[in-house]
Amino acid sequence: MTITTTEATAPARPRTRPRRTGRPAGGQGLRTVGLYAVAVLVGLGVWQLVAMKYGPSLVASPKETLSAARELAADGTLGNSVIASSRRILIGWGLGVLVGAPVGLLIGQITIVRQLLEPYIEFFRFIPPVAFVTLAVVWLGIGETSKVVLIFYTAVFIVTLNTSAGVMAVNESKLRAAASLGASRRQVLQRVVLPSTVPYILTGARLAMGNSFLTIVSAEIVAAQVGLGSLIWTSRNYGRIDWVFVGIITLGILGLVYDRILRVIAMRVLHKYGAKV
């Protein structure tokens, strides 16, 4: 007689779907846009309440400011002011980045260069550009050069200091490892120092951009016929508080746009380095 047996099999486990650890990208983006919209609406509401309390002679309401912006845009004043200020900022800031980054690399890598330049950098960076406005006009005239030089002065020290800090923050073990593998000084700079310093350079560039907006207003108030700073000062002389608000808000919007563009560029450049800006 033969006995047949059946092998016991373990009960099959029910299939479970993997949990989603994050929210959908589209939903997160909508949530961010919604929060921004709420913040803007709250700000407009507070602005309206303050304008109602103090009156149009002191605070222009959002409606009055919008009407003034349309008025200035219609005759070309606003557009010309934005173009003039943007051109001066971008040229001066760009020159500051182009000069400040290489100088910062030299200061961070070569001790004798750091010792020679550090006293001047530490001295001049504490003198605000506003203090040089009169001298810039006397030496360089009321043309574009004086304003571009002031913005360059604003940007170059910030980029230089951030770049040199990035160079000196490079891990010493990385430098020794590259040297032990036979890398030349130039290869160490290209493959170790520069990739580690790029985040510092971009951060310095963003900070320099913000300070450039601070400088352009004072420079244009003193020596410019066209520009957002000139628009604000001229509006004050005419008693047009609404025009003043237009100039101030335009500066803020312009700075926000430029900073967002820099952030997008920085994120793309730094993606391969695993850094965030």
Rank of each mutant, 00 (worst) to 15 (best):
I3W: 04
T4L: 06
A10W: 04
A10D: 07
R13D: 02
R13W: 00
P14Y: 05
P24R: 09
P24Q: 07
A25E: 05
Q28N: 06
G29M: 08
L30G: 01
L30Q: 13
T32Y: 08
L35Y: 10
V38I: 08
A39Q: 06
L41F: 06
V42E: 12
G43P: 00
V46M: 01
K53I: 14
A60I: 11
K63P: 00
E64H: 04
L66Q: 13
L66C: 09
A69I: 03
E71S: 12
L72H: 06
D75V: 14
G76V: 11
L78F: 08
A84H: 07
W93H: 07
L95R: 03
L98V: 08
V99I: 13
G100R: 03
G100D: 15
P102M: 11
L105T: 10
L106V: 07
Q109H: 09
Q115A: 12
E118N: 09
P119A: 09
E122G: 02
F124V: 07
P129K: 09
A131N: 07
V133W: 01
T134Y: 09
G141D: 08
V148N: 03
V148A: 03
V149H: 01
L150R: 04
Y153N: 01
N162K: 07
T163I: 08
V167D: 10
E172Y: 09
S173D: 12
L175P: 00
A177H: 06
A179P: 00
A179M: 05
A179R: 15
L181K: 02
G182M: 02
Q190W: 00
P195V: 15
V198G: 05
Y200W: 15
T203N: 12
A205W: 03
R206Q: 03
L207C: 08
M209Y: 03
S212K: 02
T215A: 06
S218K: 09
G227P: 00
L231Q: 06
I241S: 08
V244C: 07
V244N: 10
V246E: 04
T250A: 12
L254C: 13
G255W: 10
R263C: 10
R263Q: 15
R263V: 14
H271F: 13
H271W: 14
V277F: 11
V277K: 04
